[in-house]
Design a protein around this nucleic acid. Structure first.
Length: 1000
RNA sequence: GGGCCCGUAGCUCAGCCUGGCGGAGCGCCCGGCUGAUAACCGGGAGGUCCGGGGUUCGAAUCCCCGCGGGCCCA
C-alpha cells in the first residue's frame, strides 16, 4: 500500500508534456517508425499540397495542417501504411516579389540592369531556404505533423522540373500546345500575365474615374454618341462603339446638339451631366444604329487612328448593359476580353499601345511614355479641352488586382503560350465524378468552374520558375521544338553553359543554351518565358516521387487517397492536378478532396497584414500549447466553414483536456493502490458479469469507436473530435466515475475490479482516439499510465493499433436506459434545488413514472439513481400509476423522447437528519485530512466534542460509517492530543474536531 | 448580371437532407462538492428559429417571395 497515486500522474501542464513528448519522439525516432510500412497492410496515400515557401506560416496554415495530421494519425491507428511525404512549392512570382524587396528593386528591368539575373535567382533560392525553416519547424514538426521532411518534394529541383517539361512535351506532341494572341490581365508592376485562377483571387474594391464622352458622328449635324468608361486610357486604343441591339436609344436634344443615350439611362445621364433641359426627339433600336461612323475623339492626339480603315463605327453586342453608364460602350479590342471577341468578329484592328509595364509606346501618340494612370488623367484633360467630356466622376467597383502586389491589373492583347484544355471540359467533369468531395455541397462549384474553363495560359514573363522548354525557329516561328528532359537537352545542345543541373534548368543559364541546328532550321531560339507555377504543383501527383523513373512506387500511390487544401484551391491546385492528370493518364489523381474554409479574426474579419490581425504560427504556438490549439481547431467548426479564431476560446479547450487528465489521475489513484493488472481481467467477462454500469461504459466505449469511424468516413472532423472529448468529459467524468466512486473506495467491494477493467478499457480506447487530437498529452498518458499497467504495449500511442468496434461489446438497451436514469437523477437534482435540500442530505425516496416498457429495465439501474440522487429508496412505476402527494414535489421532462415524471420526498425524518449530520462531520474531517496533506489511505484517529444531543446521537448511530469514510481507526468523544484541531459550526451548532495521524 | 452558401439564446454554433421535443458550449444567476482539489459537479434564467406567404393533421426543417450577410464567377 505504498504506491499511493502520488508517483503516478503529476500536475496537469500541457506545455511541459509537449516538451517531454517531443523529446521522447525524437530520441526514439517515433515519427520515422510511424511512417514505416509493414508488408501486407493497405496503403493510405496522402498528397501534400505544397505550401509556397515564402512568408511565414499563420494560423490559417496551421488549421489546414492540423486537419492533415488528424486524418493521417487516424489512418495509421487503423492499421494503414501511411504515405506522408512533405512538399514545397518554391518557385514563382511570390518569391520574386520578396527578392525584389530585399534587393531594393522597383522594376523588372532593374533585375537585369542592376543586380543581374544570376544573383537574383540565387537570392530567390536563398529566400526559399530561409522560409522553409519556419515551415518545417512551426508549421510541421512543432504541431506534430509527421510528414517526411527529409524526402520532401521540391519544385525547384531538376528532376521535378523535368516532369513539368515532360507534360509540356506530351501536350506538344498531341497538338495541344500553341502560341496565341489573347487579351490577358497583366500586372504592370510584376510585368507578367496572370492566369484566370490568379485573377479570381484578387478582386477588390477600387475607386476608378467614371466619365461620359461625346463621340461626334460623321456626316450628321451635331449628333453625338455618348459613351461611358471607367478606364479613360483605353480610349487611346478605341476602335468602335457598341450598343445593345435590342436596347432603345434616345436621340436627345441638348441645346443645339443631339446625343444618343439609352432610354433607360437618360434621366441619370442628364442629371450627372448637369443638363436641365433636354428632350427625347426620337427613339431608335440599337440595331438601327449599327454602322454609323464617328470621329475618334483623340484622332489628333493619336495619329495612328487615321490609318485604321475598318474602325470607328457603331457595332452591336449583347453584353452591353442598359442598366449602367450610358448604354453605349466604347470598344478597345486590345484591352478587354469581350472587346477582343467582338472586335475579332467585326474584323476591327486589334491594337495595344501599352507595353507590358503599363507604359504607352509611340503608337500612343502624345501619350507616349505615360503609364496608364497618367494617361487616364491626360486623356480626360484633353477631352475636357476639346469639349467632348460630358461628365467626370468616380465610381467604386470590384476590380481585379495583382494577388501578390496589389497593383490594379490592366488588360492588353499579347502573345502567350497556351494549352488547349477547353475541349476537355467534359472529360474533366467526368474524371471529377470519381472523386469524393467533402463537403458534398461544394462539388457544384468545382463543376461550374470546369464548365467555364478557358485554355490554360501557361507562359509567364518572369525569371524564377520552371523555364518554358519551348524553342522556336528564328526564321520560321511556326516551327516549334519542345525539350522534355535534361538528358534530351544535353543531347540536343550545341553549347551548354558550364553549370550544375540545378542552374542548367533555370534562367538565366538555360537562356544561354544553344541547340544544334537541324535540317529544317538553322537557329533555334528559346521563348523567354517561365511556366505558370500552378503547373509546378499541378504535376506533384507524379513529380513528387520522381514518377517517371520510380514507376513501382508511383503506381502504389496513384491515384492518391486524400488531399485537403483551402476552398480557393478549386481554381488553383485542385484544378491543376486534375487537368495534368486527366490529360496524361485519363483520370483524376486523387480520390478524396477535403475542402477547408478561411480563418477569420475574432471579429469575423479576414486576416491580413494590412489590418495587422494576422495570428502567426510561432506567436500562437509559443503562447498556447499545441494540443489545446489542435483540439480547438478540430472541434470548433466544420472543416469547410470559415473559422472565427478567438484565442480566448482556447482556454475552454484547456479545461476539457484538464478534465481528461483528471479522469486518468482518478483511475490511477485507485488502480495503483489495488495493484490492478489488466492482463488478468477480460473485458468481455466484465461486460457480461459486471455491474450494469460496467456493461454500460463498455458499450459506450464501443459506440464511440463506431461513431468515430463513421464521422471520419464523412470527414466530419469536428464532430469526431467532439465525440471523443464528450466521451471523456460527459460519459466518463460526469457519469461513470461518479457511479463507481463508492465501489473503488470501499476496500471490501471485490467487484471493484470489474469497474477497473471497464474503466481501463474505456480509458485506453479513448486515449488512442485522443492521440489524433492531442498527440503530446496522449503520449504522456500512454507512457505514464498505459505502459505502467501494460509494459508490453506499443512503444508509442501513435504506433498502437486501434481495435475495430465489436458487436458483442455493445448493448443499445443499457445505453438507452442509462440515459433515462441520468435524466431521473437530473430531475431529482433540480427538485432538490427547488426545495433547498443539498445533495449531502439524503432524502426518503425518489418516485419515477415512465412508459411501461421501461419500468423493469430502469429497475436494474435503481442503485445508480439511489446513489447519485442520494435517496434511501427509489420507486419505479408506470406513468399512469405514479401518484405524487402533498409531501412531495414533482417535475415532468422528456429524455431522449421518453416522457418522465419524477417526484421526491421533502420530508426529513430524524433518521435522515442524523445520517446527514454524520455526513456533515465526515466532510469536515475530510477537509482537515486534506489540509494535513495526508495520503489517500493514511489512517487517523479522530476526536470529537460537542454539546449537541442530535449530533452526538448521529455520531453514535453512524460511528462505523464515519470511521470508514474518513479512514479512522477510532473515533473518540471528547478532546484529545491532535495534529490538527478546529471548532466548526454544523447546522448552527458548535463541534470541536481534532485529528491525529497514525503510522500505517 | 449568374452560381453557391448562410440567417436559431447575449456570443459562437448544432438541429434542417429524411417534417412530430427547439438544443450545446461559453457568458450570466443560484446552488453543491471538498479523497480528481492551483480542481470539480448540479440547477436556472434567456428564443418572433430574419420577415411574409404556401404545402401539411403538424414546419426551425419542404416550396415560393422578400430582407440581410458571405463566398465564387462575370
Amino acid at each position: 500500500m505504498i504506491r499511493c497515486g502520488t508517483i503516478g500522474l503529476g500536475r496537469f501542464d500541457l506545455l511541459s508534456m509537449e516538451e517531454e513528448a517531443r523529446r521522447f519522439w525524437k530520441t526514439r525516432e517515433i515519427p520515422r517508425k510511424w511512417r514505416s510500412w509493414d508488408e501486407g497492410k493497405p496503403v493510405f496515400a496522402f498528397l501534400e499540397g505544397p505550401p509556397t515557401a515564402n512568408g511565414y506560416p499563420h494560423v490559417g496554415h496551421i488549421r489546414g495542417r492540423v486537419f492533415k495530421d488528424f486524418v493521417l494519425k487516424y489512418m495509421r491507428l487503423k492499421g494503414y501504411n501511411v504515405w506522408a511525404q512533405a512538399g514545397w512549392d518554391e518557385q514563382g512570382l511570390p518569391v520574386e516579389v520578396e527578392a525584389e524587396k530585399k534587393l531594393g528593386i522597383k522594376k523588372k528591368k532593374d533585375i537585369f540592369r542592376i543586380v543581374g539575373a544570376e544573383r537574383f535567382v540565387e537570392e530567390c533560392n536563398k529566400l526559399v531556404d530561409y522560409y522553409l525553416k519556419y515551415w518545417q519547424d512551426y508549421a510541421t514538426e512543432r504541431i506534430a505533423l509527421w510528414l517526411d521532411l527529409e524526402n520532401a518534394y521540391e519544385t525547384r529541383k531538376p528532376e521535378y522540373i523535368e516532369h513539368v517539361w515532360y507534360f509540356i512535351k506530351r501536350m506538344h506532341e498531341r497538338g495541344l500546345l500553341y502560341e496565341g494572341k489573347r487579351v490577358l490581365p497583366f500586372c504592370p508592376r510584376c510585368e507578367t500575365a496572370l492566369s484566370d485562377a490568379e485573377v479570381s483571387q484578387g478582386y477588390e474594391d477600387k475607386v476608378s474615374p467614371s466619365i461620359y464622352v461625346k463621340f461626334r458622328l460623321k456626316n450628321r449635324n451635331n449628333e453625338y454618341l455618348v459613351i461611358w468608361t471607367t478606364t479613360p486610357w483605353t480610349l487611346i486604343d478605341n476602335e468602335a462603339v457598341a450598343v445593345n441591339p435590342e436596347g432603345i436609344y434616345c436621340k436627345t436634344r441638348v441645346g443645339d446638339e443631339y446625343w444618343f443615350v439609352a432610354e433607360s439611362r437618360l434621366e441619370e445621364v442628364m442629371k450627372n451631366a448637369g443638363v436641365e433641359s433636354w428632350e427625347c426627339v426620337e427613339r431608335v433600336r440599337g440595331s438601327e444604329l449599327e454602322g454609323l461612323r464617328y470621329v475618334h475623339p483623340l484622332l489628333e492626339e493619336v495619329p495612328i487612328h487615321t490609318k485604321h480603315e475598318n474602325a470607328h463605327y457603331v457595332i452591336t453586342a449583347d453584353f452591353v448593359s442598359l442598366d449602367e453608364g450610358t448604354g453605349l460602350v466604347h470598344i478597345a479590342p486590345g484591352h478587354g476580353p469581350e472587346d477582343y471577341e467582338v472586335g475579332t468578329q467585326y474584323g476591327l484592328p486589334i491594337t495595344s499601345a501599352v507595353e507590358i509595364n503599363g507604359v504607352f509606346n509611340s503608337e500612343g501618340g502624345i501619350f507616349r511614355g505615360l503609364d496608364v494612370n497618367e494617361a487616364s488623367r491626360k486623356v480626360t484633360a484633353v477631352l475636357r479641352e476639346k469639349g467632348l467630356l460630358v461628365y467626370e466622376g468616380t465610381i467604386v467597383h470590384k476590380y481585379p488586382h495583382c494577388w501578390r502586389c496589389g497593383t490594379p491589373l490592366i488588360y492588353r492583347a499579347d502573345k502567350q503560350w497556351f494549352i488547349r484544355v477547353s475541349p476537355y471540359r467534359s472529360d474533366l467533369i467526368k474524371a471529377l465524378s470519381d472523386v469524393a468531395i467533402y463537403p458534398k455541397k461544394l462539388r457544384a462549384r468545382f463543376e461550374n468552374w470546369l464548365e467555364n474553363l478557358k485554355d490554360w495560359t501557361i507562359s509567364r514573363s518572369r525569371i524564377w520558375g520552371t523555364p518554358l522548354p519551348v524553342w522556336v525557329c528564328k526564321d520560321d516561328p511556326k516551327k516549334v521544338k519542345v525539350i522534355g528532359s535534361i538528358e534530351e537537352l544535353k543531347k540536343e545542345a550545341e553549347y551548354l553553359p558550364d553549370v550544375d543541373d540545378f542552374r542548367l534548368v533555370h534562367r538565366p543559364w538555360i537562356d544561354r543554351v544553344r541547340l544544334k541546328p537541324t535540317e529544317d532550321c538553322k537557329e533555334w531560339i528559346r521563348v523567354p518565358f517561365v511556366v505558370d507555377v500552378w503547373m509546378d504543383s499541378g504535376m506533384a501527383w507524379m513529380a513528387s516521387v520522381d514518377g517517371l523513373r520510380n514507376r513501382k512506387l508511383f503506381s502504389m500511390l496513384y491515384p492518391y487517397h486524400f488531399i485537403t487544401e483551402g476552398i480557393d484551391q478549386t481554381r488553383g491546385w485542385f484544378y491543376s492536378l486534375l487537368v495534368t492528370s486527366v490529360l496524361l493518364e485519363g483520370r483524376a489523381p486523387y480520390r478524396t478532396i477535403l475542402m477547408q474554409g478561411l480563418v477569420l479574426d475574432a471579429q469575423g474579419r479576414k486576416m491580413s497584414k494590412h489590418l495587422g490581425n494576422v495570428i502567426w504560427a510561432n506567436d500562437l504556438l509559443t503562447k498556447h500549447s499545441v494540443d489545446a490549439t489542435r483540439a480547438y481547431i478540430l472541434m470548433r467548426y466544420p472543416p469547410a466553414e470559415s473559422f472565427i479564431f478567438n484565442l480566448k476560446e482556447i482556454r475552454d479547450v484547456v479545461r476539457n483536456l484538464n478534465i481528461i487528465w483528471n479522469v486518468f489521475k482518478f483511475a490511477d489513484t485507485y488502480m495503483s493502490i489495488d495493484r490492478f493488472d489488466p492482463s488478468k481481467y477480460d473485458v468481455l467477462t466484465t461486460f457480461n458479469e459486471g455491474a450494469p454500469e460496467d456493461r454500460w461504459i463498455i458499450s459506450e466505449t464501443n459506440t464511440l469507436l463506431r461513431k468515430f469511424d463513421e464521422l471520419m468516413g464523412e470527414y466530419r472532423l469536428h464532430e469526431a473530435t467532439k465525440a471523443v472529448l464528450d466521451f471523456f468529459v460527459e460519459t466518463l467524468s460526469h457519469g461513470y466515475l461518479r457511479m463507481i466512486r463508492p465501489r473503488v473506495w470501499s476496500e471490501e467491494s471485490l467487484d471493484r475490479f470489474h469497474a477497473y477493467t471497464a474503466l481501463y478499457h474505456a480509458l485506453k480506447t479513448g486515449l488512442q482516439l485522443l492521440s489524433t487530437i492531442a498527440p503530446h498529452m496522449a503520449e504522456k498518458l500512454w507512457q505514464d499510465f498505459i505502459k505502467r499497467y501494460e509494459p508490453g504495449e506499443a512503444e508509442s500511442v501513435h504506433l498502437s493499433r486501434l481495435s475495430e468496434p465489436a458487436k458483442d461489446l455493445t448493448d443499445e438497451r443499457i445505453e438507452k436506459l442509462m440515459k433515462v436514469a441520468l435524466g431521473v437523477i437530473s430531475s431529482a437534482a433540480s427538485l432538490r434545488n427547488e426545495v433547498k435540500i443539498k445533495l449531502r442530505w439524503p432524502i426518503q425516496y425518489v418516485k419515477v413514472g415512465l412508459p411501461r416498457d421501461y419500468v423493469e429495465g430502469l429497475k436494474e439501474l435503481k442503485h445508480i439513481i439511489r446513489l447519485l440522487a442520494n435517496s434511501k429508496d427509489v420507486i419505479i412505476v408506470s406513468y399512469e400509476e405514479l401518484d405524487c402527494g402533498e409531501e412531495e414535489i414533482s417535475e415532468e421532462t422528456k429524455v431522449d423522447n421518453v416522457p418522465l415524471k419524477t417526484c421526491i420526498s421533502r420530508e426529513l425524518t430524524s433518521e435522515l437528519r442524523k445520517e446527514a449530520l454524520a455526513r456533515e462531520i465526515i466532510r469536515r474531517v475530510q477537509t482537515m485530512r486534506n489540509s494535513l496533506n495526508l495520503k489517500v489511505d493514511e489512517p487517523i484517529k479522530v476526536y470529537i466534542k460537542t454539546e449537541d444531543d442530535e449530533i452526538s446521537a448521529a455520531l453514535n448511530e453512524h460511528r462505523e460509517y464515519v470511521a470508514s469514510e474518513v479512514r479512522a481507526r477510532d473515533i473518540m468523544f471528547g478532546e484529545g492530543e491532535a495534529d490538527l484541531a478546529k471548532e466548526w459550526v454544523v447546522e448552527g451548532r458548535k463541534v470541536w474536531i481534532g485529528i491525529k495521524r497514525l503510522r500505517s
